[in-house]
């Protein structure tokens, strides 16, 4: 029988994978991908709790999250394109103009 715990553990694994991806990858696209992974990990938790508690509020939250994620990806990709145009690469280590 698959219970709440299984979903939550999966969600935690996905989230940790996302964090690891952000910290280890240097390519902007991969970082954006990792962010999506973390958002979806959160979504999975929401859905699981929604089902477990029989409350539709969790599913409503997920819709909001998906809208925000879409916006974030739009802006993120635009930034990535500009970055590529000005720097000629998507390596974040080379994008350090804001160094103090």
């Amino acid at each position: 029988m698959i219970g709440l715990h299984h979903y939550l553990v999966l969600s935690a694994i996905l989230f940790a994978a996302g964090v690891y991806g952000i910290l280890s990858r240097r390519n902007v696209l991969l970082i954006l991908l990792s962010v999506e992974l973390m958002l979806n990990a959160a979504n999975l938790s929401f859905i699981a709790f929604s089902r477990y508690l029989g409350d539709l509020g969790g599913q409503v939250f997920v819709f909001f999250t998906m809208v925000v994620a879409a916006c974030e990806v739009t802006v993120g990709l635009a930034v990535a394109i500009l970055l590529y145009r000005t720097r000629g690469s998507l390596d974040t280590d080379q994008a350090d103009w804001l160094k103090g």
């Binding site: 952000i22 910290l23 240097r26 970082i31 974040t92 280590d93 994008a95 350090d96 103009w97 804001l98 160094k99 103090g100």
Partner: peptide, 13 residues
């Protein structure tokens, strides 16, 4: 000033 490395990884970490 040295905290402001400009590297996104450092901030994220």
């Amino acid at each position: 000033r040295r905290l402001q490395t400009g590297r996104i990884h450092f901030y994220a970490l």
